[in-house]
Design a protein around this nucleic acid. Structure first.
Lengths: 227, 227
DNA sequence: CTAGTTAGAGAGTGGCGCTATCCATATTAG
DNA sequence: CTAATATGGATAGCGCCACTCTCTAACTAG
């Protein structure tokens, strides 16, 4: 199909598709001449995925590029492939503030790009859980940052408070992995993993919110509020 | 204290503090004259909270405003207060795409601002769980939208697939509520609820990612990959 | 008195996600 | 075969957002 049909079938303007092609969010079509290219169903699927990541999940274009990029680097077996997918962190490299307050003692540490053992708390948490993760996972830094942020707000919070959450995350992850058991093809598995990992996130947070509301009703609702 | 000290103690430029004041993210200081105002510790705490919501959590200024606004509307008891906090949804009103594809049958429904019974799937889910939530919770629409997005990608997905996730969300929410048991004052409870609800979100997603990685290693790692 | 600070308001800035325009070539309707 | 339309590629522009700068008039510390 040509670009106009791709546009019609996806609901995305051609100008935007061209933009995504330029940005590398989609592979170029098969060129049939200097000013003509042919697209197929895989382009349509990719386009819909990109739109879902950017629109529904709210990722930035560059984050979406990283994610779909991991899908294109497929070479190894299922484990490597999933490692690639799960290792992508949307906003990696964007540490905003560490909670700078009154104690302005900036220690100039040896800022290596890989984790060199700072994140000590996360290391302890992971060790306690017995998890098997690489030291390069960007998600480590996210946990560290959250802990620092909470403490910057004056809350006494250490990794132990996250332990029960982590146990539930473990079971959530098991559910996720169950759902990619279906396809045999590693590539399909990876695509399914991307969809479930990223697109389910808003729903999981929404479910937490609804559950909080329900739990608050159970704990704090006075008799006068009952219907 | 005056604005410069507020700036020094928080690390936020005065221009930005003025901007937040203009946008209503912080209450104005107590004016001592036409060009002078006095701020106190509560302003500092609010400022740090706003920064954490915008910086660490990545919320927009208007979303942050809604959230801290819920803290200011405090009048009722703990239940009402928590209902206010848990009822806020960061990006409410921003439904991006519903997964428009080939089947372009736009039914012009009576778009009422409150939920008028569409979200049937979420209703079923909530009923099955026995949750006690109002029909106005914006989180409902988020779940509906996620379901639609996944189906728009060609995945067969209905509310039943979310059931086990919801059960885990229930337990996560119980952990959240446990942690706001501390303070007696409803206002402090509410502030703690905001902190835990919103600032923990990135960490919870990061823990899921780490757990996925670990679970994938357990399930798919071949013998050759072992250290 | 003077130098510095402050509240308040408006304009300006840089980044981002598109969107519009242009041009040389291709395709296609008649 | 010609003319209208579509395409790929490139560049420039637009609208929004989160600040950031500038300015004025009033205050305050020394």
């Amino acid at each position: 199909m040509r670009i106009s049909e791709l546009s019609r079938r996806s609901g995305v303007p051609t100008a935007t598709i061209k933009f995504y092609l330029r940005e590398g969010l989609m592979p170029p079509g098969r060129a049939t001449s200097a000013t003509q290219a042919e697209y197929d169903e895989s382009h349509l699927r990719r386009l819909r995925l990109v739109r879902a990541l950017i629109g529904a999940r709210g990722l930035s274009v560059s984050a979406a590029k990283e994610i779909v990029g991991s899908l294109s680097e497929v070479e190894g077996d299922t484990y490597e492939l999933l490692g690639l997918v799960f290792g992508v962190w949307p906003g990696a490299g964007g540490g905003t503030d560490t909670g700078a307050g009154q104690g302005a003692k900036a220690d100039g540490d040896a800022d290596s790009s890989a984790n060199a053992g700072q994140d000590a708390e996360v290391d302890a948490l992971i060790a306690e859980l017995g998890w098997d993760v690489t030291e390069f996972s960007p998600a480590r830094k996210t946990v560290t940052r959250t802990l620092n942020t909470l403490r910057g707000l004056g809350i006494a919070y250490d990794w132990r408070a996250l332990l029960p959450y982590a146990r539930l995350a473990e079971r959530t992850a098991a559910l996720d992995l169950d759902q990619i058991e279906g396809p045999e093809d590693p590539l399909e598995k990876a695509e399914r993993a991307v969809q479930l990992t990223f697109l389910l996130e808003p729903a999981l947070l929404a479910l937490r919110r609804l559950a909080q509301e329900s739990e608050a009703a159970a704990r704090y609702r006075g008799p006068s509020d009952r219907p």
